[in-house]
């Protein structure tokens, strides 16, 4: 082997080692098992099939970080409580507001719009019609927040005790079909259920006049230090940048919708 060739190989090996060390230094700390909670919600995660976007994204996080992440499933309201208390490290598909910013950090990886799914016989032509009719009740998942207009609507209805809360989507669809509630706020993840024949026949979809709302990895500020949050944030950005996130969404949505949700 010629000396210059050997030197070149040594140089490449050294650079590769240095790059690996730098990459390792940028990766999150995996010295302890981490916890990540999913919630049963349409295409995000189905407990029935143990599949969904969030499950795939959690697997991608596990692979990319090399950390051991224990995945648990629990109601969304409980997830927020545990994120706030530090009893849980991560959750997925979270949106932010001023209150949540106090106890959680976020790393966005998709955005989506919100829609009002309303019974056809409710006489609602526009979103505002729903609030105006005191006989109409809205169904919602406890602790969920939405886009600004949707939040204003649900807060106004809640003040009048016109919101029935549930810990999951299934009872909301059921009560919607039983005319016990007359509308609910949905996201693209709920399209498969909405497109089922008996729901589609009885309902119509109205769009809130709001821009898409970013969703992301939720990090508990109590259990994940700021430096670690920055590493996880960089890791999520990496998953977005190399197309991993879009590939996950492509499994569940048409390419154009997948692109619209992940490129924001």
């Amino acid at each position: 082997m010629k000396p210059d060739r050997l030197l070149r190989q040594l140089l490449v090996a050294t650079l590769a080692l240095a790059a690996g060390l730098v990459r390792a230094a940028d990766l999150p700390d995996c010295s302890r098992p981490l916890t990540l909670a999913l919630h049963d919600h349409g295409l995000l995660y189905s407990r029935q099939t143990d599949t969904g976007i969030d499950k795939d994204f959690a697997d991608a996080l596990t692979r990319r970080s090399g950390c051991r992440i224990n995945i648990v499933v629990m109601p969304r309201a409980r997830i927020w409580q545990l994120i706030e208390s530090g009893g849980l490290d991560f959750s997925l598909s979270g949106i932010s507001n001023a209150q949540r910013e106090r106890f959680a950090g976020f790393a966005w990886y998709f955005s989506n719009k919100y829609y009002l799914l309303v019974r056809r016989d409710a006489g609602v032509q526009r979103v505002a019609d729903f609030t105006r009719n005191p006989a109409l009740r809205l169904g919602a998942i406890r602790s969920f927040r939405y886009s600004p207009s949707a939040n204003r609507m649900i807060d106004a209805l809640d003040a009048d005790l016109r919101v029935s809360y549930a810990s999951g989507l299934a009872p909301l669809y059921e009560t919607l079909l039983a005319n016990q509630i007359h509308g609910m706020i949905i996201e693209p993840f709920d399209y498969p259920a909405v497109e089922s024949a008996h729901i589609r026949e009885q309902t119509t979809i109205l769009e809130f006049d709001d821009p898409p709302v970013p969703h992301g990895l939720i990090m508990s500020k109590r259990s994940v230090p700021p430096a670690e949050q920055a590493r996880w944030h960089a890791l999520v950005d990496g998953l977005r940048a190399d197309g991993s996130v879009e590939r996950i969404f492509d499994k569940y949505f048409k390419p154009e919708l997948s692109r619209a949700m992940t490129r924001f």
Binding site: D40, R47, Q48, P75, R142, L161, S164, Y165, A166, S167, G168, L169, A170, P171, L172, E174, T175, Q180
Partner: peptide, 16 residues
Amino acid sequence: RFATTEYISFPQHTWA
């Protein structure tokens, strides 16, 4: 004075 219905969702099952 106040009354409401809350749904607890279990896998494939609900309590009101």
